[in-house]
Design a protein around this nucleic acid. Structure first.
Length: 104
DNA sequence: GTCATGACGGATC
DNA sequence: GGATCCGCCATGA
């Protein structure tokens, strides 16, 4: 069980219609400052990991090459029920996953 | 064991 | 408010 596996496990806890940030997952993994590690793990994320629900703490999506285009990720999130602001960012403050609700 | 890197985050300019 | 810099932590060579 590497830190990466913890990240994947935490990411799978994110319910549809909810959003989470790298820092949030890092926190759940035990390292609030390892947000970068979470991102690196997302790159190697296997199937079953809704890495598209994991975005920046600011609500902005990652680089354009993330899912073949940030527009793709945005559509995926909209399909989940996520609302987007006119700024082009996701309504993170309204869909931010508390990290609780599934486990507990 | 050490050096460099990485889907980040917060602070500063 | 936006852009830039530094710091942090885990992984790979």
């Amino acid at each position: 069980m590497s830190f990466y596996d913890k990240v994947y496990a935490a990411a799978r806890q994110i319910p549809a219609g909810k959003l989470s940030t790298y820092g949030q997952l890092a926190l759940l993994c035990g390292s609030p400052r390892a947000s970068r590690i979470v991102g690196a793990a997302m790159l190697h994320a296997p199937e079953g990991v809704p890495c598209h629900r994991v975005i920046y703490g600011d609500g902005t999506l990652c680089c354009d090459q993330a899912f073949g285009g940030k527009e793709i990720q945005r559509q995926m999130l909209e399909a989940e029920g996520i609302a987007f602001l006119p700024d082009g960012r996701a309504d993170l403050r309204a869909h931010l996953w508390d990290g609780t609700g599934l486990e507990e």
